[in-house]
Simulated scan of single mutants.
Amino acid sequence: MTEAELIDVAREAVVVTLVVSAPSLLTALAVGLLISIFQTLTQIQEQTLTFVPKLMLVFASLVLFLPFILGQLTEFWKHTMDRVISGGG
């Protein structure tokens, strides 16, 4: 593989990493925002209140999006191995 092909594979790896991590990160962001709004409205400032719901919903999103995540990773792996075996392109 040439240097340009390696850079292209690295770029694809970064994109796949962002796409695969997006569901759990967006879930954590949304849950954190909703709990922060709830805490602001009720003036409850308990730090542990955010931990359990966020943990449970992020885990649930991982379970829900697992087929998508595995599909993306498998497709990236196949594409990368095809490039290595065929010698590029």
Rank of each mutant, 00 (worst) to 15 (best):
S86E: 08
P67R: 02
S86P: 01
S36G: 14
A30K: 01
T42Y: 05
I85V: 15
T50R: 13
T48L: 03
K54W: 00
T50C: 07
E75Y: 12
L62I: 15
M56T: 14
L18W: 10
P23K: 04
T17H: 08
S86L: 03
M81W: 07
I7H: 13
T27Q: 02
L73E: 06
G87V: 04
E75G: 07
E46N: 09
D82T: 05
L73I: 14
M56K: 05
Q72A: 15
P53M: 00
F65H: 09
V9W: 02
R11Q: 14
I69F: 09
T80A: 13
P23F: 00
M56H: 00
G32N: 13
E3P: 02
L29E: 03
P23W: 04
L70S: 13
L64I: 15
A22S: 13
L26H: 06
G87T: 04
G89M: 06
K78N: 14
L57E: 01
W77S: 14
Q39M: 08
F59G: 10
I69A: 15
L62N: 10
D8V: 05
Q45M: 08
A13E: 11
G89P: 03
D82P: 00
I85P: 02
M81S: 07
R11V: 11
L62D: 08
A10I: 10
V20Q: 12
H79C: 01
E3Y: 03
V16S: 10
L49E: 00
L66K: 11
L41F: 04
V52N: 02
V16Q: 07
L66G: 02
V19Y: 10
M81C: 06
